Simulated assay, not measured.
Amino acid sequence: MAVYYELWKPMLRAGEDLSFWQEFFVYFYQAFLENNRWLQYLEGMGTTLLVTAMALVLGIALGLIVAMVRTAYDQQRPGQSSSLTRCLMWPVNFLCKVYVTIIRGTPMMVQLLIMGLVIFKSSRNFTMVGALTLGINSGAYVAEIIRGGLMSLDPGQSEAGRSLGLGYIDTMRFIVIPQAFKAILPALGNEFIILLKDTSLITVIGGKELLYAAQGIYGRTYEQMFPLIGIACMYLALVMVFSALQSRLERRLRQSDRR
């Protein structure tokens, strides 16, 4: 293959007529095979998956905490909670609402630039800064998804748990959240797919993921189509795998409901 590349590349540069497949081969070879450039894509994909995993864990943790706080505050009924409890929960609920409002009301790109160029301007670990920013951003959306699922359940579910002597945390853990999870799984899956694709944005602060690898390659070859289409196909493959795993989980949950 290298022999054909070395033969056809000078001809292409000289403007000689080559067939479509000869031009395709030259551009493909220089984008993926020359100097083992495919290793750069693999390294970028590894960084993409790492950032996605870290942001996913952080987003779920933040989203679950914020959703539980806001749900507990919204579901308080007069006479069931002491005035002291309501006073203590109000500032925490207010902070959660401010967090969700700010994160959902500002663009992801702006948040990344603020985190990378202002808050962590002295840090050189751009990948971790990007993962932290994506996790914080995702947490706000996950919080609203989970809160919607929790609020959609019959309040009698929580009351039944309390009547059995379970505290709020145990009631949410063993009764409410398992039921809400089935309802919110499609929305959560969609959010996680968006998170995977949003990892491409960390390149603006120097994160070395897939888009960064493609930019480095077409900056040397001066041919943008193949590197960009290549990483687009890689993102598509990752999303398809994630979607297949989500569909399999949904089928298992449906099967457990029938038993």
Rank of each mutant, 00 (worst) to 15 (best):
F181S: 13
L7K: 12
P91M: 01
I202W: 03
L56H: 06
E23N: 07
Q40K: 11
V142T: 06
N125K: 07
Q75F: 04
P107Q: 03
D257F: 07
F192I: 00
Y29L: 05
M89Y: 01
Q22F: 08
L64H: 05
L50Y: 13
L112W: 00
V142E: 07
A244S: 10
G79I: 15
L42M: 13
T199K: 04
Q30M: 08
I103K: 10
M89K: 08
G206E: 10
G219Q: 02
A214P: 07
R259M: 11
F226N: 10
M11A: 11
V118I: 11
I184M: 13
Q224Y: 13
Y99F: 15
L112G: 01
Y29T: 02
T85Q: 02
V66Y: 00
G63C: 02
Y4S: 12
V57Q: 07
K197C: 10
L95P: 09
A214I: 01
I175F: 02
F242I: 11
S247C: 05
T52W: 15
K97H: 04
S256K: 09
R70G: 09
V100P: 02
D198Q: 10
V204R: 05
Q80E: 15
Q76V: 00
T199L: 05
S122R: 14
E144C: 07
K208Y: 11
L201T: 02
D154I: 05
L249Y: 07
L185M: 14
R37E: 05
W90Y: 10
Y41T: 09
F174R: 14
A53R: 00
L12Q: 09
G207R: 01
V3P: 12
P107Y: 07
F192Q: 01
A244K: 06
Y5Q: 03
F32P: 12
L210S: 02
M225A: 12
V110H: 03
G216W: 04
L12R: 12
D74W: 03
A61W: 13
R70D: 09
L238D: 00
